[in-house]
């Protein structure tokens, strides 16, 4: 059986993305992800969903050469878009259940 994990440490994230800690500190300072664990950077751990957004943010920062503040805004909007899409889908499904049978 395979071990599953729900967290990623800063050290691992630096290795995975080939980056240094400073980039992660920068992303955290801009509110892109909230670390758990200790106070010092080396003790930080992130949940897997935060890692998803952190990776996205780092790629956007590096590939598009855009400022962290713009990356943070973009991530915020992408998250809002994703959650609105999910909410829309769920409301639509609920509405259909409510209207079904009444439309005869």
């Amino acid at each position: 059986m395979i071990e599953i994990l729900l967290k990623v440490s800063v050290k691992e994230l630096c290795q995975i993305e080939s980056i240094n800690e400073q980039i992660i500190i920068e992303a955290v300072d801009h509110g892109i992800a909230k670390p758990h664990g200790g106070r010092s950077v080396t003790e930080w751990v992130f949940d897997t969903n935060s890692v998803h957004w952190l990776k996205k943010a780092i790629r956007l920062h590096q590939d598009l050469e855009i400022e962290w503040i713009a990356v943070a805004m973009l991530i915020d909007l992408l998250q809002q878009k994703e959650s609105l899409e999910r909410e829309k889908q769920s409301i639509q499904q609920q509405l259909e259940r409510f209207l079904q049978q009444n439309e005869r």
């Binding site: 059986m1 395979i2 071990e3 599953i4 994990l5 729900l6 967290k7 990623v8 897997t48 969903n49 890692v51 998803h52 999910r86």
Partner: peptide
């Protein structure tokens, strides 16, 4: 092919990490 234990109480949108796969 992998056999994985999905923990009780997983929520929609959650991500599970499997090292090295």
């Amino acid at each position: 092919n992998l056999r994985v234990k999905i923990p009780k109480g997983v929520a929609d949108g959650e991500r599970i990490r499997i090292r090295g796969q």
